[in-house]
Write a protein that binds this DNA or RNA. Structure first.
Length: 512
DNA sequence: TTCCGACAGTGGGGTCGCAAT
DNA sequence: ATTGCGACCCCACTATCGGAA
C-alpha cells in the first residue's frame, strides 16, 4: 500500500465528524490492505509509530525539502526506513539522522510530507483510534463487529486480529479464545459522584475497596506465572512477591484480576508514588523489593481451570475467586441488596477511607466482565476536594483548542501575600468557558510572548482535585492530583483565595 | 570517569462535545 | 436521555543517552 493512500484517508477521516463516515473510510482502506501492511497501517492510523519516538526534533523536520511530484513511497518502505533511522546512534548521529529524514521527505509528495510530519511529531489527530478501526475492520471483512471487538480484547491487540482477519477472513476469529498466558484488556470503571447514585443505578451490588496501586492481571499455568499491567506489559520480573503469592494459591491454572499495592509496617497503604516507583523499578529489583514490598489484592477471576468466566455474572466469578484466593488476598467488600441498603454502602466507604484507601468501586452483581471497556456496571466513588485558587498564567491550546487559552497555571496564597504555583489543569472547561477565559486572561496579560501567557494574579477559580502529592517541581513541594476546573469565582478577590497553609493542613499525611 | 539534564516511556487520571442509539 | 469514544493535557517515576564537569 502506498503512503499516499494512507495520507489521503487520514485527511478525510479527520475532516468528518460522523463516526459512520470514518468507519466507512477505514473499511475501504482495509479492503485494499495486504496482511503484511497491517502492523504498520494500524499504528499509523492511530498516529503512532511502531518504533516509538525517533529522536527527530523540530529543528530537523522544519527544514524544507522539495517534495516529489508523484507518490511512490510504500508504507512498508517508509517503516523500514524509520526503523533504520531509529538504529542510528553515536557520534555524528544527529547529522546522519537529518540526512535520512531529508531523503525520506524528498521522496514524498506534499500531502505525504504533511502526514509524515504529523506522525513524527505526534500531531495526527483524526478522531479515529482503535474503536473506530475495529468497526472499519469488521465492515471490510464482513465479520460481526461484536465478534471482532471480542477478539481484540482477547488478543489484547487490534493488530493481531486485523492481520488474521485480512489473511484468513472471519473464520480466523475463532482462534482468539481466552487463554492462560495471553493477557486480556482489563475492564475499567466509570465514575459516580456518590455511593447513593451508584447503588441507585446498579441495584444489588458489591461495594469494594478501591486501592491506589497498579492494576495487574495474574496468569498461572502450573508452575509458571506471568503478570501483566493494564496496557498488557509483562512485568513479571519486577514483582517476585506476586509470583510467590500466585504459586501459593490452590489452583494450577487461572487468570485473576487485581491491584498490586505496597503496605507500610503499620499496615496502612503507602502513597501511590511509592507503589508506582517500586513497580517501575527493574534494574535492582531485589533492593526495591526490600525497601518497598508489594502485595497483590485480587477482585475478579477471568478463567479457572480453562473455564472462561468472562460472560458469567460477577457474583459467580467472585464465588470462583473466593474458592481460589484466601480472604487477606482479596479486596474487602460489602454486599448491598439495593437502594434501601445505601446506608450500609456509605458506612463501608467511610471505613475504607479511614483505612487510608482511595474510595470504593460499586459493582453490579449480574454483570459480565466487559474486557477492554469502561463497563457501566463498575462505578468508582472517590471523595472530591475543592479549593479556590488564582490563575497565574495560561497556555495556548492545540487541536480543537487552537486559538484558545487552555491549560491554566494555578496558584495558592502564601504567607507573604504572593502566590505559589501548585500545578496546571486543562480539564472541566466547557467551550463557553474556554472562549470567556481566553478573552479575560488576555486582558490580564503581562507577558504574551511564547506559548505561556502570564497574567496578573486576579482571577479566582474553583478547582476540584483528588488529593495532594509530593512534588519536586513546584515551590510549595506539593501538587494537586487530577485537578479540574469547577467554575470561575468572579465574586471572590485573590486575597480570598485558599492558602498553601490551609491546603497542607487539610492533608496532614503529605509532607512537602 | 562520573554527574546531570533532557527525553522517552511507564503508571495513575476527569470532563467535555458529538454521534449514535 | 444515555452511552461510547476521542480529544484535551496533567502529575510522578524510572531508565537511558549524550555532553559537561
Amino acid at each position: 500500500m502506498l503512503l499516499a493512500r494512507l495520507a489521503h484517508v487520514s485527511q478525510e477521516v479527520a475532516a468528518t465528524s460522523a463516526r459512520s463516515r470514518k468507519i466507512a473510510l477505514l473499511a475501504e482502506l482495509f479492503r485494499d490492505a495486504e496482511a503484511d501492511d497491517v502492523p504498520i497501517v494500524i499504528p499509523y492510523l492511530a498516529g503512532r509509530l511502531p518504533q516509538g519516538r525517533l529522536g527527530v526534533g523540530w529543528k530537523v523536520l522544519s527544514r524544507p525539502v522539495a517534495p516529489a511530484g508523484e507518490p511512490s513511497l510504500a508504507v512498508r518502505e517508509v517503516d523500514a526506513l524509520l526503523s533504520e533511522l531509529g538504529k542510528v546512534s553515536g557520534t555524528g548521529s544527529q547529522a546522519e539522522r537529518a540526512r535520512m529524514v531529508g531523503e525520506l521527505m524528498g521522496a514524498a509528495t506534499e500531502d505525504e510530507q504533511r502526514y509524515l510530519l504529523g506522525l513524527l511529531t505526534g500531531e495526527v489527530r483524526q478522531g479515529a483510534l482503535d474503536a473506530v478501526a475495529v468497526e472499519g475492520l469488521a465492515q471490510a471483512t464482513e465479520a460481526p463487529p461484536a465478534d471482532v471487538r471480542r477478539a481484540v480484547m482477547l488478543a489484547g491487540s487490534l493488530q493481531t486480529v486485523a492481520q488474521a482477519l485480512l489473511a484468513d477472513g472471519p473464520a480466523a476469529l475463532d482462534r482468539f479464545r481466552l487463554t492462560v498466558g495471553r493477557p486480556v484488556l482489563p475492564m475499567l470503571a466509570h465514575s459516580a459522584s456518590s455511593v447513593a447514585e451508584a447503588v441507585d443505578k446498579l441495584g444489588a451490588c458489591a461495594v469494594e475497596e478501591k486501592l491506589d496501586g497498579i492494576r495487574v492481571q495474574v496468569h498461572r499455568d502450573g508452575d509458571s506465572v506471568r503478570i501483566y499491567t493494564r496496557t498488557l506489559d509483562d512485568i513479571t520480573d519486577r514483582l517476585p512477591e506476586l509470583t510467590a503469592a500466585a504459586l501459593e494459591l490452590n489452583g494450577r491454572r487461572f487468570i485473576l484480576d487485581g491491584e498490586v499495592i505496597s503496605f507500610g509496617a503499620d499496615g496502612r497503604p503507602r502513597s501511590f508514588q511509592e507503589t508506582a516507583g517500586r513497580v517501575g523499578s527493574r534494574v535492582d529489583v531485589a533492593t526495591a523489593a526490600e525497601t518497598v514490598p508489594v502485595s497483590p489484592v485480587f477482585f475478579d477471576a477471568l478463567s479457572v481451570d480453562d473455564r472462561d468466566l468472562l460472560d458469567l455474572p460477577f457474583a459467580e466469578r467472585h464465588a470462583e475467586l473466593a474458592r481460589l484466593v484466601p480472604e487477606p488476598m482479596r479486596v474487602r467488600r460489602a454486599l448491598v441488596s439495593g437502594p434501601q441498603d445505601v446506608a450500609e454502602a456509605e458506612r463501608f466507604l467511610a471505613v475504607t477511607l479511614e483505612r487510608g484507601h482511595e474510595g470504593v468501586v460499586v459493582k453490579g452483581l449480574d454483570a459480565a466482565y466487559s474486557a477492554g471497556r469502561r463497563g457501566a456496571s463498575w462505578l468508582k466513588v472517590k471523595p472530591v476536594h475543592t479549593l479556590d485558587l488564582v490563575v497565574l498564567a495560561a497556555e495556548w491550546g492545540h487541536g480543537r483548542r487552537t486559538g484558545k487559552l487552555s491549560n491554566l497555571h494555578l496558584g495558592a496564597r502564601t504567607a507573604d501575600g504572593t502566590f505559589a504555583m501548585l500545578g496546571k489543569t486543562f480539564k472541566g472547561m466547557t467551550d463557553a468557558m474556554l472562549t470567556w477565559q481566553t478573552e479575560r486572561l488576555q486582558e490580564l496579560a503581562t507577558d504574551t510572548n511564547g506559548h505561556v501567557v502570564t497574567v496578573r494574579p486576579e482571577l479566582v477559580v474553583e478547582i476540584a482535585y483528588d488529593g495532594l502529592q509530593r512534588s519536586t517541581r513546584y515551590p510549595a513541594g506539593v501538587t494537586l492530583r487530577f485537578a479540574r476546573v469547577v467554575r470561575y469565582r468572579e465574586d471572590k478577590r485573590p486575597e480570598e483565595a485558599d492558602t498553601v497553609e490551609t491546603l497542607l493542613a487539610a492533608h496532614p499525611e503529605v509532607k512537602p
